[in-house]
Design a binder for these strands. Structure first.
Lengths: 250, 250
DNA sequence: GCAAATTTGTCCGTATGTATC
DNA sequence: AGATACATACGGACAAATTTG
């Protein structure tokens, strides 16, 4: 099908305008399709042959366009099943920053240090609002995570990082700003990826980490923004110190 | 040239392990190549046929892998010229967030609001350090940008946004944290892309914006962190108001 | 300024792997 | 188990862009 309407493109290739690659038009076409039909994450997209016909491109171009959109988590592909609208996560940011951290032979520590600084800024800069808006139930859930860390302490270090991540995610939740929470966890992911390659230990003393978290919860419970900020500062200080030490070792 | 060592892969395709797509192996292979050879942004990569032979994949797979890496700005391709290491910018974050902002029919304003909040947090949260560390020469350059806004005011609105962006970039520069500066400009880019689609005006009164910036410069010159933070709050307040008003219009 | 060489862009046809019914 | 629909991968061919002689 679609005979005789395919070879229209090469004719009159936009006299003046610097022609963009066909795959980019396909990228824009797929984006436009999603927006036009108001699709949500998880909704199905047309099959590759259907997209080829609809956008007047070959499978190669369509597939390359899909790869680009997949990298941005705008579309998601399940082999043998179909293509769907992606979750629009910040996975691309994680990939990009993680590689940047691995690439620089000199200032890779700087990347790590920057990450931690931004995370601290999120929590310290929002201290007043966080202390004020964290509800009693959320405080109890934070306490529960601290208890969980104590319990599974010597067990697996793997669950420890998960609980730590959950703690900070929950801490930022009441802001009602999804972007801050997602950036914070994205930076955490990057840190976990990059740190081992630079001989930066993620945890030195788990007990100290637990105590720090407990102090943060206590500060929230007392509705004491100053103590909250101080506890955060003391929590992040050793992280910065470990980065500085690893840098010095080089 | 790497002859006879290429066709080892298809044999014994990892008995139990859930095999990942070949293009992903190519992605990892190219990443590893860049890291192994300690390449920097702008450095040339092997040609597509060379990558095919080196990684034991067809050209289609190599090209799809390259598309993924270009989306992340890890590699950059120039038609008819070659492929090179990319700039490792945050362009993927911009694309991803911009699309997210365009997609949500309801809470797209939330995305915009979140962006602005983070930008304000960067500048207000670092008020003390910024006021302390901005040098005299940098203050004069900030003043120069304000003067430039006044001069080219009624001219083209296009140069105005550029100057505004430059102002905030320069403001955050003395932190020595590239990530904050790049995130801030990335969010600004997203805002400029998304706002017009939601009938959110980027500028209402250019004169007011100029006055705000002047007040910020004055606060820095007086080394007055409190006034600096207050000026920023007053600068961002109308932006938030415009978003809220546009949301109400819906 | 033209022509050749190099490199990426696009297309087609075919075969294979995977998930669903 | 078989059939169907779909994505994955391959190889070859030609077009378009860029550089160089």
């Amino acid at each position: 099908m679609a005979l005789g309407q395919g070879a229209v493109r090469p004719v009159v290739p936009e006299p003046k305008a610097a022609r963009q690659p066909l795959r980019q038009e396909v990228v824009d076409g797929i984006k436009a399709y999603i927006l036009r039909n108001k699709l949500r994450p998880g909704d199905p997209l047309p099959t590759e042959p259907a997209l080829c016909e609809a956008l007047g491109a070959s499978r190669s171009s369509v597939r390359e366009a899909i790869r680009i959109l997949t990298a941005l988590d705008i579309v998601e592909v399940r082999h043998g099943h179909g293509t769907y609208v992606g979750r629009l996560s910040l996975s691309a940011l994680v990939e990009s920053l993680a590689f940047r951290g691995l690439l620089s032979p000199d200032d890779d520590f700087q990347v790590l240090s920057d990450l931690v600084e931004v995370r601290e800024l999120f929590e310290r800069g929002m201290a007043d609002r966080l202390v004020a808006s964290l509800g009693e139930d959320q405080i109890e859930r934070l306490q529960g995570l601290v208890d969980e860390m104590r319990a599974g302490g010597s067990g697996g270090g793997d669950g420890f990082v998960e609980t730590d991540r959950a703690f900070h995610t929950l801490l930022l939740a009441p802001l009602g700003n999804d972007l801050i929470g997602q950036l914070s966890t994205a930076f955490w992911d990057v840190y976990v990826i990059v740190a081992p390659h630079l001989d930066v230990f993620t945890y030195e003393h788990e007990a100290a980490t637990i105590a720090d978290h407990q102090r943060i919860v206590d500060a929230v419970r007392d509705r004491d923004p100053a103590e909250f900020a101080a506890a955060l500062a003391d929590h992040y200080a050793p992280v910065r110190r470990r980065i500085a030490e690893a840098r010095a070792r080089r």
